[in-house]
Design a binder for these strands. Sequence first.
DNA 1: TTACAAAATTGTAATCATTATAATTTAACA
DNA 2: TGTTAAATTATAATGATTACAATTTTGTAA
Lengths: 136, 136
Amino acid sequence: MEKYVKILKDNNMKITSHRINVLRYLDKHCTHPTADQIYTDLKTNNPSLSKTTVYNALDALESHGIIQAITISGSELHYDITHEMHHHFYCKKCGKIIDIEFCCPNINKMSEYGHEVEEVHGYIKGICKKCIKKGS
Amino acid sequence: MEKYVKILKDNNMKITSHRINVLRYLDKHCTHPTADQIYTDLKTNNPSLSKTTVYNALDALESHGIIQAITISGSELHYDITHEMHHHFYCKKCGKIIDIEFCCPNINKMSEYGHEVEEVHGYIKGICKKCIKKGS
DNA sequence: TTACAAAATTGTAATCATTATAATTTAACA
DNA sequence: TGTTAAATTATAATGATTACAATTTTGTAA
Ligand SMILES: [Mn+2]
Ligand SMILES: [Mn+2]
Ligand SMILES: [Zn+2]
Ligand SMILES: [Zn+2]
């Protein structure tokens, strides 16, 4: 059984080709794409795909914790497969979102506050290495 | 000279009553309001206020680093006066944004990546203490 | 298999936060 | 006090996302 079929099955989700494609896309691309980017890319091999289906698939996958929405840009959602906790860097110049492979040890302190923690997002914004080079 | 006038002056910004009002509003309210909430509240004492002016004032204040946009909700921007670095908790039930008074020590490691850091945002999402109580 | 019910997909229209535009007013400064 | 650049205003436009209703597909049970 394909890896992505198993993930959907394990989460009691109906198996559809669109969901598999969206999930595979996010697994293969570490670019943190938007719904529109996923839609445009998948549509080339599947012209009948509707953008609403991409939104629906993303919502369904997110509600099961299989993927996460990244709100770093402030104007549109980006998506990422849920795996080891990591942070994200957003370049204000080129818009790229880059993985930052550490995370905050103080998150443990959250229990003191009495809130129930479901997600942790670390967003760092600035100018990326490449854009600094180009600019100088 | 009023505190807020000084802030604007120090940043070489033109002094306008609207900018002062927006700035004072953010300083007095620790609720992380949206542009619309600020607009609605300020309009009661100043009916000629335009929503575009609130957006413009927020953009101007943000571009000078006096305030920060919080992208935690994913659907609309919330604003906060820039002061000591802290994180934010977002309740998925009631939508409230609560200050979390610690921050990530690993941010220092960012220099290893070669990116130029301008902003650091720590967003934690879940169910707030009050909503947990209500729900049980 | 076949048949059925629940859920997914589709295309379109609606929503809502934000931005663009152009006319008018105001702040800063000589 | 007059001039000029910038701020304000009202309105229109944009763009991401959601709502909706008709159609198709999935999972399951006869
Ligand atoms: Mn990532
Ligand atoms: Mn805050
Ligand atoms: Zn860049
Ligand atoms: Zn709450």
